[in-house]
């Protein structure tokens, strides 16, 4: 099965979910991405991306802990799946390979 490559925003969201390690839900993911990338993101964009990644099988989710702040509503906690991890690694590998081929950065050439 051919796996579609990840978009840039998707990759950021996936990485954020990995960092949050089981505690990733809409708002925490949004904050994580915002912190690292330094840009401001809409909550809806995060939600849409999370669900799209889940539909692609790169994330899995369950409903979890509620707080008073949320009006006693549960949050959907996302976790990366094995194939999600593979995709991330593959994307990372492609970049590594290409980085290594840039002449200015490679002293051996």
């Amino acid at each position: 099965m051919k796996v579609k490559s990840l978009g840039e925003f998707e990759e950021l969201v996936l990485l954020a979910v990995c960092i949050l390690d089981g505690e990733g839900y809409g708002i925490s993911v949004k904050r994580e991405v915002e912190n690292h990338s330094g840009r401001s993101i809409l909550l809806g964009a995060v939600h849409i991306t999370l669900y799209r990644l889940q539909d692609k099988g790169l994330l899995q989710s369950k409903l979890g802990g509620n707080t008073g702040k949320r009006g006693d509503r549960r949050k959907r906690l996302f976790k990366i799946t094995e194939s999600g991890m593979r995709q991330l690694r593959a994307a990372q590998d492609v970049r590594q390979k290409m980085w290594r081929l840039i002449p200015q950065l490679n002293p051996s050439i």
Binding site: Y25, L43, L63, K69, R70, G71, R73, R74, K75, R76
Partner: peptide
């Protein structure tokens, strides 16, 4: 809706 409303309210506060 539950998670959306939850998230929205959290960020709202």
């Amino acid at each position: 809706l539950e998670e959306f409303f939850g998230d929205l309210e959290e960020i709202f506060q």
